[in-house]
Simulated assay, not measured.
Amino acid sequence: MRCPFCGNPDTQVKDSRPAEDGNAIRRRRQCPGCAARFTTFERVQLRELTVVKKSGRRTPFNREKLNRSIQLSVQKRNIETDRIEQMISGIVRQLESSGETDVTSDRVGELVMEALKELDSVAYVRYASVYKDFHRVEDFREFIKDEHLGAKKGGSGEPSA
């Protein structure tokens, strides 16, 4: 593993342990050249995935890009990092085990939406606002109403949407 700081091609593993419920191995490494320490993760990859965008453009699946988009939706929410990692691993496993090497960006988005709906309703709405391209406040209201995410009781004690 090449050092991300100085580019040294030889780094030493200082510690290894299971991560993500045993679906990955977390390794702490140190560079003998610059003494920097960093962490890497090893995961089983069943197949190379290609994401087919709405425009027809094809790009290699990027787990880190998926992670970044989810991190934006869960920002400042009280959600454990392990739960987010488990969710991402579950999405990737679903994609890899589908038997397809080409997956549409819509399919990826739908899987993220399903997982976020179970994890945190605020993160779910945040992700949906980008994924479904909300432009108006009314788009949020309609989405929340349609998804039955509204408060259980309004100020008057009556159910609200």
Rank of each mutant, 00 (worst) to 15 (best):
P4T: 02
P4Q: 01
F5L: 07
C6Q: 04
D10L: 13
V13P: 06
R17A: 02
P18A: 08
E20T: 15
D21H: 05
D21S: 11
G22M: 01
N23D: 09
R26L: 13
R28N: 07
R29Y: 08
C31M: 06
A35S: 15
R37E: 12
R37C: 05
F38R: 02
F38N: 03
E42N: 05
V44Q: 14
Q45R: 15
R47S: 07
L49Q: 08
L49P: 07
V51N: 05
V52P: 09
K53L: 12
R57H: 14
R58Y: 06
P60A: 12
R63T: 04
E64C: 12
K65H: 10
K65V: 10
L72N: 07
S73M: 02
N78D: 02
I79N: 06
R83N: 04
I84V: 07
M87W: 04
S89K: 07
G90K: 05
I91P: 05
V92E: 08
L95F: 04
G99T: 02
G99M: 05
S105A: 08
R107C: 09
G109V: 01
G109H: 01
V112E: 00
M113K: 05
L116G: 00
L116S: 00
S121Y: 12
A123K: 09
R126H: 06
R126W: 02
Y127I: 14
A128K: 08
S129H: 11
S129N: 11
V137E: 07
V137M: 09
E138W: 11
E138Y: 11
D139S: 14
F140M: 14
E142I: 15
E147P: 14
K152Q: 08
K152H: 08
G155C: 02
S156I: 00
E158D: 09
